[in-house]
Design a protein around this nucleic acid. Structure first.
Lengths: 227, 227
DNA sequence: TAGATTGTTAATCGATTAACAATC
DNA sequence: TAGATTGTTAATCGATTAACAATC
């Protein structure tokens, strides 16, 4: 007699969602948002793909992960699609976050009002520099690092943003982990070592520059050769 | 009689180098740089991989694209490897670049002294705001946008950095392209439309946030369910 | 109806990983 | 020598793209 098959998870789940998909969803969100503002009622994957220079089939598959169903010939209801993507991304309720390292980049990020619509609300910032401590930057108070663990626990903070220099990044990450933070957005050019259940997303500016400048260098070499 | 086979290109070329490889090379560069500073003479892919949490075979393949040859049992000569990666990336001679949009992010990037070692030297900045025009930010003078085409031609600028708001990005990109810029580092959350021979590298902060916050949201949902 | 679009399955493509001979 | 490492070829894996029936 055949064995009973595994019961599939009933709740739509992030498990098994390819990372490229997760990276593309915010783009759809933005496009759909604009359409909603323009009063458009329905949108097709073809349209979204055209705006973002993406294959319509890919858009459709990505969107399917959020659990929404569309209508053949019509597409998706704009408002419903926007909701679906936003809740899938966890952007309906922004997470409170701490920012570590109030240098030029940290200050710039504190100035971004828009993060609240994208899942993150920076509620306090930390720095070791006694000159910065106690000041207020873009409405957020700067605390010394030693106050972080206590405040993180009291305020139930789950997310940390690292904008410290490379040589301070690992230590700062350790502090975040010890303080119970679960997710780290890392802007330091460092491969952090953290427990495997901690979520790390590293923003690699130099990686981008690697692509850009190697391509440009090649392009210029070619131009020179042809001349 | 067999036909003569295609003659392979003699010069090592960026053509056909996978983009993931180009993105990883800067990491190797950094690790190898530090080893050189420490006076280490040879380095293996195993060591590099361990530092960056990458598979040694992948490191070896990536490095091979730069054209260097190593020695079995020994690895690569640190100095030679560093040179090889740097010249492959086009980082030996930083490209002069213009920055458009002196907001908080633009200002932060102007403050990054380190770009010069990574292929980019920001030589001037541009903004439409008359209050900013004429001032000096981190040693660079701010010009009005209308002066860009002329200056770009005179200074033979090939690279532009876009740090304008999303709704100004396409227009600014058009201006850059008309001014003869070949490569654009785009920090605006916008899919730019440019001629196909123009190199664009878009820094997608919200894409990163998509990954981070969807994973965190899932993680928190799970924790809640189990409780 | 005709035709655009969805949802889904199959084919393709490319990158990562594994395997292994050559080497010092 | 023994064993770690390179260079390279083959196998695996996963994502993108193509194909197509179902639908409104």
């Amino acid at each position: 007699m055949a064995r009973i098959e595994e019961i599939p998870a009933a709740v739509p789940c992030t498990e098994g969602v390819p990372e490229p998909t997760l990276r593309r969803l915010p783009g759809y969100c933005q496009v759909v948002r604009r359409m909603a503002d323009d009063g458009v009622e329905n949108v097709s994957c073809t349209q979204i793909g055209a705006e973002l220079h993406l294959d319509p089939t890919q858009v459709r598959k990505d969107i399917a992960f959020t659990g929404i169903v569309g209508r053949p010939r019509v597409g998706y209801a704009v408002g419903e699609l926007y909701d679906s993507i936003e809740s899938f991304l966890g952007w309906k309720n922004a997470q409170d976050a701490f920012l570590i390292g109030v240098g030029s980049l940290g200050t710039a990020l504190l100035g971004y009002a828009n993060f609240e619509n994208h899942g993150v609300r920076i509620v306090a910032a930390f720095d070791d520099d006694p000159i910065k401590v106690g000041t207020v930057v873009h409405g957020r108070k700067i605390y010394p690092l030693q106050k972080l663990p206590n405040l993180a626990a009291r305020m139930k903070i789950h997310m940390g943003i690292l904008t410290v220099p490379a040589d301070a990044a690992q230590e700062a990450a350790n502090l975040l982990v010890e303080s119970g933070i679960l997710a780290i957005w890392n802007f330091a050019p460092t491969a952090l070592t953290v427990p495997e259940d901690i979520i790390v997303q590293t923003e690699e500016l130099f990686a981008s520059l690697g692509v850009l400048s190697s391509k440009l260098a090649k392009r210029l070499r070619r131009a020179e050769t042809h001349a």
